[in-house]
Each structure stands twice: as structure tokens, then as C-alpha cells.
Design a protein around this nucleic acid. Structure first.
Lengths: 211, 211, 211, 211
DNA sequence: AACTAACCGAGACGGTACGTCTCGTCTTCGC
DNA sequence: GCGAAGACGAGACGTACCGTCTCGGTTAGTT
């Protein structure tokens, strides 16, 4: 992960509606980090709805205003707290095989969603986004777009290599890749496990492969 | 009141954890209906987060206690208000073709989710369910289970008829059927339209058909 | 107490704003008595503010409507429940001495107020009456007027006998007789005991006696 | 703000169980005063029972929590709102005559109780105190104790000067001084007027004077 | 080295909604 | 047909957070 070292730069270099003051002349790294850590702790302990700005501030030993100075709302803080897991730690796989690439991506995604509090966080964020279009935009950009773009690249490369047929609908293919994962995450009717990922990838390949 | 026995049967025949007193000896049909109607009106006007128990009570001309007497929380009311759309109005298609059956089901689902306030309601409910496991159970039972069961039946019939191969994972197939729909509903990165349904059904058939 | 035997008749023969239907065509003696008993029990257990119409009904094994059928409010029930203690059980003393008559009256009053729940009841009723002029009227008539009238008679007899001088203000004398007792009952800054009654009677006699 | 320091001294110099946080690091004088004013307005308009915390907050243009931040209950607010009338405005009279001193005290008290809403307020507070021992303590301390102490001083000076005999019961004397006043205030069977005060003082002097 | 802007913690503020409570009235159903 | 049981409209209760706003007391980056 070569890009991992300049995290901070990535998080704050791009203007985001749910955070403030991108110029960010002076901000205490200590309290910035304390806020994000407190957020993750609270989310793990009490779930998404158990997180309140007041609780974050108290846990982080920070004034509420310090939070509102840099973020517009609770969701903004949570998004930033989970930005690492969900957005940056997605290495573009380069196995030469579409199936293996997809397998790696979905495996990594489902692992993060099930073994950390990221699943609860993102489910809550999706929930919030239903009531807040601006938040929905940021969520898509931050947590959805990069994975979709990466997957698109993988599929396009597969087509170029002749591994995949060129006439399937790319957007639908990506929806079929991620939709079932989010579905299991949110509805919780069945586990989001290795078997599931394997079946899903197999199914995708059947459809997209040259027949 | 000839419709009295009819209503009672529908509303109260199935025990619901988010409602109270299933024995339900006496309750005013007038205010029961007024509450559900007010809930739908408010959800259409202001979205899920704009609905509050206080607003429902005011709109329905009802005391707050009357709502809390029969439901444990806002989500319970909304679930019951949308139970008709989501659960009852699912006719089992009988076209003799799996593809056509699926097309009908997904068409009807996507139409309801996009042309009524049901989409917003269910998105909000899924959100709510993330923080409330009991609610999640009821949601699955009320809004997810019946459609999954129906789809399972359709696919099993397809296998019996030899239309589908018998060796695909049934649960994953159903996830792949509904996952992308919920995904587009919640993430809103692309429209949940006729073309999407068509592509999705085609993809599913390619995978499941005898090759 | 010769008049004690026709209690019921006394309570209901005179129209009272806080009770209903003075004609009293049909009323269950059983539940009437159960309500009054439950009221006294509750007042003894939880104090005036712990009494609610709902609690009385539950304790008496009676519907709320049965209470509201005969009384207009909680205070009406409590007044009737304590009517015996406070109004009827005041035997006119006939000792031939004003001082002894007053001593008996005040002794009996202070005993009732301190050894039964009557004190708490009347304190609460006075409180209620502050916010409800109609209740104040009934309270005065039921709990104050008869004692004042009796005391007036005693003092007038004392004047006739030449025991008391005839030129003191009768109303003020009665206020000075009862005011300090209520004052100690309500403010609770000092005990409402035998010594107090003795001092008070002595003081009154000094003032009113022929000097 | 020249009156700033003045207010603070008066409002917060004495610890009060029905108010919170006596240290009181920062509080808005504006809203503190607005709350007390709104309380008095409402009490004058609607009487004691017509005052609710919600109404006070609305009238004062203040959040409910701002009231609950500083007081534990409605009665605490009302007590503080009337503390001025009842506690501060009691000048120790120094006429050299016990009778004149008592006359002044009782005149001032009866005037306040009958010409302002203070009578209604205190009657309501006494009522409230019947159900709440802690409130009763504060009430005694705030509205009763100072007048009793002052009266005691007056009577003791009278004894020293030889104006009064030294062998009457001081506590009973004070009860006889104030009891009849509260009695007329609460029972309202007769006016709390100048004539009454005059008769009462006369009576007291007859009893206490050297004979 | 002093100045000065800003950030910092703390938490009060006006609000909104929560879920509970009790009032006094109205309705149903069983005895 | 009476009466227990309790649903109903109303509205206050006291709590939890929201997002904004002061308040002094540090910092940190000029000057």
C-alpha cells in the first residue's frame, strides 16, 4: 500500500461537504485523532445509534465545538473515522485473472465488513444517507465510487484480454457484484462469508465469460 | 360494520414484536387507520426522518399514548403502514416461464419502490433496523421473507420443469436477484428502472439456465 | 354521638358541587364504600399526591367511570372519605366552662390531624382548593363551617354566662383559635401537641375573659 | 452591566436545595430573569396550577432544559420568583413599641399577600410542600423562618424593655401571630384586611402585656 | 519576547422529540 | 342494563441530543 503513508493528505486535500475548512491552517493532530478514535470506540460499543456528538466529545476529552469546527455532523465524523478501512485500503489486485481479482476484492470487502465495526458503521451511514441527499453524495464518492471504478477497470481489462465477452452491461455487472454483499450486510438473513463470496464470483464469471 | 372482522383479521392475525398486545381485545378502527394514513402522508411529505410520533399523533388527531399503546416505536407504525404494499401486494406469478416470473416480480418491486413512498419507507426501516435487532427480525419476516420464499418456489419449479439446472446455490441466487435492487434503492448511484430489471433478469437466466 | 348513625343521609342529602346526582337514585353501597376505603388506604400509604383516580379505581376493584359518575374529581372523593373524621365527629362539648370546651375541641382536632391520615388529607385538600374556588367553597362548608359555628356557640354561651367579656371580635377569636392549629399542621415547624393546645387555650382565655 | 454583580449576589448567595449547582459558574442573567418574570406573569394570569414548566419556558423564550438545569422542579422556580417579596422585603421595624412593630409587620405581610400574586403563589407552595418534605424544608427556611426570627427579636426586646411579661410561650406567641393570617389566606372565609390585622395585634398585646 | 489570532475545553443556550404519566370522557363487552 | 375494564384526546412531565453560542485559558506563528 504505497499510498497509505500520505493518509492525512488524502483525507483533507479534497474538499468534502461534510467536513469544513479544507485549508486547515491549524488543527490539533491530537484532538483530531482522539475524536476519530473515540468515534470508532463508541461505534463498536454501542452501535451506530449509540454514537452521539456529545458522547464523542466526552470520550475524546474535547469540546463539542471542536467537532463542529471540522465536521458538519455526526455522519461526517463517522465517515472520516472509517475512511481508511473502506476506501483507501483497497489495493488494486493484479493477478491477471478477472475471477481472482474479483475474489480478492470481495473477500477483502466482506472481511472488513464482518470482522470490524465497519459493517455497522456503513450500514448506519447508508441509513443516514436516506434522509440526507448531501450525505448520500459524499457516501457514494467516498465508499462506493472507488470500488466501482476499480472493478470497472478490472472488467475492462478482462474484456481487452478476451477473458470476458464485451457485450454485457458494465454498470449492472458491478451492481451484481456489490449488491448482494450489501444486501447480506444490511438484511442479515444469511452470513456474509467465504462461501457466499465464492458462489457470487462463480456466478458472475459464468455470466460474463465468453461462452 | 361489516368490514370490522375483515380488518381485524388482516391487521392482527400475525403476532408482531413491534406491536403490543396481540390479543388486542378492543381498539378503535378509526384511530388505527387514521394513524397509518397520517404516517404515510407524513412520510411522503417529509421523508422517513421527518416522521415523528408527535407529528403522526397530531396529524391523525390522536393522543400520543394511543400510538404507544399499540406500537413500541415509530418504526413499528411505519412497518405496519407499509405492510400492505410490501407484503400483501405480491401476487405469485404463474407464467410458466422462470424468466417471465422473475421479470414480473422485479418489475412490480421496482415500480413500488420508485413510484410510491415505499422506497423511502423501506430504506428508512433498513436504516433503523441496523440499530435494533428486534426490528431487523420483524423487517426480514415482514418485507423480505415472503418475497424470498416466493422466488424460491419459482426457481424450484423451474428446476422441476428442467428449465433451470439444479446445481446452483439457491440462496445466493435469491440474493443476486434482490441484492442489486436494494443496492440501487439505497445507494442511488443509478436508476432502478425497467432496463436495469431486464438486464438483471437476463443475467440471472444466463447463470441458472441449463447450458 | 347521636347523629352518627345517619351518616349516609347527611353526606348525600345536601347538594354538593363536587359530587353528582344528589337524588342518588341507584348507587351500589358496596362500591361506594369500597371507593372511600381505597381512598383512605392510598392516602395513608402514599400521601395526598400519591392518590390518583386510577389508583383508587384499581384498589377498589371498580371502573374509573364509577368514580366519575358520582364525583367530579379526586378531591371530591377525598373530601367525602374524610368527611366523617373532620366534620361529623365533632361532639358539641357541654362542660359549662368555655376554657374546657375549647380545650376539648382543640384536643380532639389536633389528635385527629396528627394520629390519622386526616391531617395529610386536609393539607392536600387545602392545597387543591387554592387552585379551584369551587372546591374551596365545599371545603369551607364541609370542614371549616361546622367547627366555626360550634365555636361561635360556645363563645356566645360564655358571654351569656358572663364568663367572657362581650366586646371582642368573634370572627377574629375563632381565627385565633383555629389559625395556629392549621399553621402548625401545614408548615410543620413545630409539633401540634397537647402542650401547644394548652398554651393556645390559655392565651385565648386571657384575652377573652373579663379582666 | 452595573447590575450584574448585584443580581448575582442576591440570587446565588444562599444555597438552595431546590436549585442546582450553587457554584454556578456561568449562567445567563438574561434568561434567569426571563424565567422568573415569566413565572410571575403566568402565576398572575392563571394561578398556581396554571403554571407549567413548559409554559414558563415558552413565555420566557427559553428551552425547557435551561429551567431544569438550574431548578429541580416547578416549585423551586416559583419559590425563587417570589423570594424577593417574601424574604427581602421584610424591614425590621424599630418603632420602640412592640404593638407598633407587630402592626407594621402584619400590615406589610397582609398587603403583599392580598394585593400581589404572592398570596396565590405561597398558598400553592404550601400545598406543594404537603407532598414534598424537601420542599417543605426550603419553604420554611425561605418564607417562614426569617419572619419568625424577626418577630422573636421584637418580642424579646419587648420583654427586656419590660413592655411584655417574660413568662409567655414565645413559639406559641409567634404561631398566634402568623397562624390566623395564613388561615385567612388559605381558607378565604373572611378578608385579610386592615381591621383583621388591628384586632389580631390588639389581642396579642392583651395577652402578652404586663397585666 | 511579546503580541495576537485561533484553537481549545467546557458547557449554557433555544429547540425538537422522545416515551411516560395522569386527567376526565367515551366505548365495549361480560355478567 | 349495569358496571369492570380500559381505550381515547389532551397535554405536562423530565430526559436526551441537536447544532449554536459564549467563556476564559492555552498555543503557535508572526513581528
Amino acid at each position: 500500500m504505497p499510498q497509505h503513508s500520505h493518509d492525512t493528505q488524502i483525507d483533507e486535500s479534497q474538499p468534502q461537504p461534510l467536513t469544513k475548512d479544507p485549508s486547515c491552517r491549524r488543527r490539533s493532530q491530537r484532538c483530531h485523532q482522539a475524536i476519530l478514535s473515540a468515534t470508532i470506540e463508541l461505534l463498536e460499543e454501542k452501535g451506530y445509534s449509540g454514537v452521539s456528538v456529545e458522547a464523542i466529545a466526552a470520550r475524546a476529552g474535547v469540546g463539542k465545538q471542536t467537532i463542529y469546527r471540522w465536521w458538519t455532523c455526526k455522519a461526517g465524523v463517522i465517515m472520516e473515522a472509517y475512511a481508511d478501512y473502506a476506501a483507501k485500503s483497497v489495493p488494486m489486485p493484479e493477478t491477471g485473472s478477472v475471477k481472482e481479482d474479483l475474489r480478492q476484492i470481495l473477500h477483502q470487502l466482506s472481511t472488513i465488513l464482518t470482522t470490524t465495526s465497519t459493517g455497522a458503521a456503513l450500514a448506519g451511514l447508508i441509513a443516514e444517507a436516506q434522509a440526507n441527499p448531501e450525505m448520500a453524495d459524499v457516501f457514494r464518492e467516498k465508499f462506493v465510487a472507488s470500488r466501482r471504478a476499480m472493478t470497472r477497470t478490472i472488467l475492462e481489462r478482462g474484456i481487452e484480454r478476451g477473458e470476458l465477452r464485451p457485450d454485457f452491461n458494465m454498470d449492472v455487472a458491478i451492481d451484481v457484484t456489490y449488491g448482494p454483499v450489501w444486501y447480506r450486510l444490511l438484511i442479515k438473513h444469511a452470513p456474509l462469508d467465504e462461501t457466499f463470496v465464492e458462489e457470487l464470483v462463480t456466478m458472475l464469471m459464468v455470466w460474463m465469460q465468453v461462452q
